[in-house]
Write a protein that binds this DNA or RNA. Structure first.
Length: 415
RNA sequence: GCCAGGGUGGGGUAGCUGGUCAUCCUAGGGGACUGUGGAUCCCCCGACCCGGGUUCGAGUCUCGGCCCUGGCCCCA
């Protein structure tokens, strides 16, 4: 027996219905913000991702050499491909560009709850905008997409300048170490690390900063900084938009290209992998040979959203089972076509079994049964049974279709 | 890469202090039923993750691998 590769999943029709439903709601949110969808290749030059994230991530990627000797990788994320697309083909489009995407990504990691080797991201990039308004729009779209999906979660907004200003004197390695400990809120280990650096004086301010819940508290720790005005303006816009959010100045975001405002969202019931969205303002285009273009974007972990949502109620369409004997089979196909033409879901019984067996099957999943045996076929009518009420009538096909579609066709209207 | 727990018909399970034809539910197929409801009854289908070891004998003990679940690391 062949197994599916580790960390991948199969989706049956009922799961795909739920996923499509949620995906559709997120797409609609993006559309309403004026974002258009982009799609990039499932694999790219390996260098695209190492330029963005450093050579270390090769170990976490599905990288390979193709038959032409090219170093390629399955995309581990979608921001770099989107910016590559921008640099390749869209530099001259009027800015800002509003793009969104929903696609699968691949990472060679140990699977756990909400983490798979093939997973889907929904994200957006606002390219070529450099303002408080742009920052606010990205946060608001992320929130709109998650809310539209039906998710209850917590939005945290921060800014990298504050932490960076406190750590400005530290060298690269020390700063990374301190930020990693801060990210995990391991304050004891953090104190030890700072003492070892001879910077025990930083512990107090860092502690204050990460626990700050207002802008005044946070800038009280760091003093005024470039970017303060923009962050205050962004916060004002988010509040004006009625967004439910809180500040968190301990948000680290792994990479250097983030330039200012950053945000993350967390949902309950997700175990260790509870972050459902991450994003912020960044500059990436110049790494791929474009102009230094300020952008802001985010990515939502679609699979985690699905896990957090649990059962997703999917709007159910009317199902009509079409039953027939051998004499009625041709008419049954005609009836099914008419039902489908009216937008209904018509399921022909293909079993060739007795009508009793067909009715048994129909009763399990259908709302109505249209029945055509020798009698109906020769009379040019159909049996139309409401499976909820058990009432069966003999009707012309058009009227049966109209009944199933929820419209009453009165004799008076026909005259 | 590390840790813990786990893998028995399609799904869910019992057996797990070696030895009955491996239990039950459900799903699926057929029939009772050649024109009408989810019922009932009968029949059928179908499993010990893979490989090595111990043993007269392994689903059961043991080792390795693969996979699953959760956690660590990482998290772009």
């Amino acid at each position: 027996m062949l197994q599916r590769p580790r960390g991948t999943r199969d989706f049956l029709p009922h799961e795909m219905e739920a996923r499509s439903e949620v995906e559709g709601r997120m797409r609609e949110a993006a559309r309403r913000f004026g974002y258009g969808q982009v799609r990039t290749p499932a694999f790219e030059e390996l260098e695209l991702f190492t330029l963005r994230s450093g050579p270390g991530i090769v170990n976490e990627m599905y990288s390979f050499e193709d038959k032409g000797g090219r170093a390629l990788a399955l995309r581990p994320e979608l921001t770099a491909p989107a910016l590559r697309l921008f640099v390749n083909e869209a530099r001259v489009l009027p800015k800002p560009l509003r793009w969104y995407y929903v696609d699968d990504c691949f990472r060679y990691e140990r699977p756990q709850k909400g983490r798979y080797r093939q997973f889907w991201q929904f994200g957006a990039e606002l390219i070529g905008a450099d303002s408080a308004a742009a920052d606010a729009e990205a946060v608001l779209l992320a929130d709109a997409a998650l809310r539209a999906a039906g998710l209850d979660y917590e939005m945290k907004v921060g800014h990298l300048a504050l932490l960076r200003s406190l750590l400005a004197d530290l060298d690269e390695g020390a700063r990374r170490n301190v930020m990693a400990l801060l990210d995990k809120r391991e304050m004891d280990a953090l104190g030890g690390a700072l003492d070892a650096l001879g910077r025990g004086d930083l512990l107090g301010p860092l502690r204050e900063l990460v626990s700050a819940t207002t802008l005044d508290e946070a800038f009280g720790v760091t003093g005024s900084l470039p970017g303060e005005g923009r962050l205050r303006a962004t916060a004002g816009l988010l509040e004006a938009a009625g967004l439910d959010f809180s500040f968190n100045f301990g948000i680290v975001r792994g990479l250097d290209y983030y330039t200012g405002m950053v945000f993350e969202g967390f949902a309950a019931n997700l175990g260790a992998e509870n972050q459902v969205v991450g994003g912020g303002a960044y500059r990436l285009a110049h790494l791929f040979g474009g102009e230094d273009t300020p952008s802001v974007g985010f990515a939502i972990g679609f699979d985690r959203v699905m896990v957090a949502l649990g059962e997703v109620p999917v709007p159910r369409r009317t199902v009509v089972a079409v039953l027939s004997t051998a004499e009625g089979l041709e008419d049954a196909f005609r009836a099914a076509a008419a039902l489908r033409g009216a937008g209904l879901r018509a399921e022909l019984d293909l079993s060739g079994r007795g009508l009793g067996a067909q009715m048994t099957r129909a009763a399990k999943g259908a709302d109505f049964a249209v029945l055509i045996g020798a009698r109906e076929a020769s009379a040019g009518v159909v049996g139309f049974k409401n499976l909820a009420t058990g009432i069966q009538e003999t009707l012309p096909l058009e009227e049966a279709v109209a009944r199933a579609a929820g419209r009453e066709v009165s004799a008076a209207a026909d005259r």
